[in-house]
């Protein structure tokens, strides 16, 4: 039991246990259609959560990811929509809009990183402020209206494109964190920024890069969410922040920095998606669903924390 508790795959094991318990009780849970739904539901969330994990590992937090998703969604839609878009009717509208969305996301992340490092402001305050600013700007740009009539080539990304993007992002992020000097700098910065600075780690540049990655991946998630709904929305993703943080923490990322992996994050995202999926298929009442979700996430986090304590004792 101690071995299971301290396993790096504890969350994955919990997710599998949850599935094993629910599958016989919930009709349709174990069908190929539902499993495909489950994967399909978790992919965009995985992309945005991996970006957040970069910032968390570096010892920060990015509250603005949901606002970046919304702002990228409407800016991309303003460029490519078939009615009033700047590139309406142009065959290059979809690829140009996607590039523009990614550029906007990376730029917004870069601004967050600069504000945190250059202005020496707490990440929480900076990204809380930018969350309001970016979100408000998205609403102002569209006057609260959704933008539809997006090109079919763009909407087509909602299918196989989603899987491709998520796999590429996960592999690239894993490789960066495990096998690159930037990955090592990121962990070092999150563990002890001052010691890292003294040791020659370019802490400011690493922090700015982490926020830029977060912004870029939020934009990539925005592309996937927007394509899925075939609509640019100024409130897109507004309610997913808790899922992002829950998935990251359940997946073993520390809110104090210095710890987190892509594999753990994917397991955390799977757990959150599985929870949503099973509560949905159960038809649990709205008045119970948030409580049930909160309790299960709390239990998973407690188990993770117990595992860390056991690991700490083992080291001592």
């Amino acid at each position: 039991m101690r071995g299971l508790l301290t396993s790096r795959y504890l969350v994955a094991v919990l997710a599998a246990a949850c599935f094993a318990v629910c599958a016989p009780l919930i009709p349709g849970m174990a069908t190929s259609g539902n499993l495909s739904n489950l994967v399909w539901n978790m992919l965009p969330l995985a992309v945005v959560t991996i970006g957040e994990v970069f910032v968390l590992i570096a010892g920060g937090i990015d509250l603005s990811v949901t606002a970046i998703i919304a702002l990228c969604s409407v800016t991309g839609a303003l460029v490519m929509n078939g009615r009033t878009g700047y590139l309406a009717g142009n065959p290059a509208a979809a690829p140009v809009a996607v590039l523009f969305m990614l550029l906007v996301g990376a730029l917004l992340g870069f601004l967050n990183g600069c504000a945190v490092t250059r202005l020496r402001m707490p990440a929480f305050i900076v990204t809380l402020t930018t969350m309001m600013f970016f979100g408000g700007f998205a609403v102002w740009l569209t006057r609260s209206a959704n933008i539809d009539a997006l090109p079919p080539a763009f909407n087509g990304l909602a299918g196989f494109g989603t899987l491709t993007v998520a796999v590429v992002v996960a592999l690239a992020a894993h490789r960066t964190l495990r096998h690159s000097i930037f990955g090592r700098w990121l962990y070092a910065t999150g563990m002890n920024a001052r010691a890292s600075l003294v040791s020659g780690v370019p802490v400011h540049a690493v922090t700015i890069a982490a926020y830029s990655v977060s912004g870029l991946l939020a934009a990539a998630a925005s592309v996937l969410y927007t394509a899925r709904l075939e609509t640019g929305s100024p409130v897109l993703g507004q309610r997913i922040f808790l899922d992002v943080i829950a998935a990251a923490v359940i997946g073993g990322t520390s809110l104090f920095g210095g710890r987190g992996t892509v594999a753990g994050t994917l397991a955390g995202v799977l757990f959150v998606a599985l929870l949503d999926n099973s509560l949905n298929l159960l038809g649990v009442s709205f008045f119970l669903v948030f409580t049930a979700k909160g309790v299960v996430i709390l239990v998973a986090a407690l188990l993770d924390s117990a595992a860390q304590r056991v690991l700490g004792e083992a080291v001592e």
Binding site: L14, A17, C18, V21, C22, L25, I26, P27, S278, L279, L282, G283, V284, S285, L288, A292, V295, V296, V299
Partner: peptide
């Protein structure tokens, strides 16, 4: 955890 899952299943599935 198992008990909670079973209770959830019990309260939700009325099909």
């Amino acid at each position: 955890i198992v008990l909670a899952a079973v209770m959830l299943a019990g309260c939700g599935d009325k099909t």
